[in-house]
Design a protein around this nucleic acid. Sequence first.
DNA 1: GCGACGATTCGCT
DNA 2: GCGAATCGTCGCG
Length: 205
Amino acid sequence: MQLLSRDFYQNTNPFFVGEQLIGKIIETSFDQKVCTARIVELEIYKAPEDRGSHAYQNKLTDRTKIIFEKGGLAYVYLCYGIHHMFNVVSGPEGVAHAILIRAVEPLQGIHTMKSRRGIEKEVQLTNGPGKLCQALGIKTSFDGETLFERRSKIRLLDDGFKYIPDDLYKGPRVGIAYAKEDANLPYRYYLKQNSFVSRPLIVKY
DNA sequence: GCGACGATTCGCT
DNA sequence: GCGAATCGTCGCG
């Protein structure tokens, strides 16, 4: 298990970073509880031209300032007043790319995740951006945490897992109708065969 | 200061 | 399939 390096996140191409993040491991540790889970679905938000991005046209506010930092930080915000959303900040300083983690596959700490979620069914634990934050204990207080340090409450790790490139689905992002034509861009990635993906494509016959 | 709204989830019909 | 929950952020003036 190896920490992803600080340099990895600063790559200027957010699509490359997104492809690399699929299959990597998120580990949270605090309150003497450790949870790990594999990333199986994410969405790219590409500054400054992406209307879906909070940093569209490089809009700089108290909330978005963290996205402009050097890659390798967590961007966590509250959605609908209830759900936390976890993003990986990428790109060099001043370039506001963010990658929303939409689904993960639980590996360790499943008992803790069940207790945080208040449910027993494993497939429901982390198959959505709000759900996985609840399961892993990710809150807005994680905003700005570094992802490349052992001492962080949240880290990203590589265990050598490799997916088959043909298994990677690329399609439109979810829930961003306000982004108009940008909503159709293929910025959502997920592993086709994985049962923890949120809202997988329904195949019609 | 205030009103509108959201990168969602859950429960009920 | 639909609507409510629930609150921080943003834009307006």
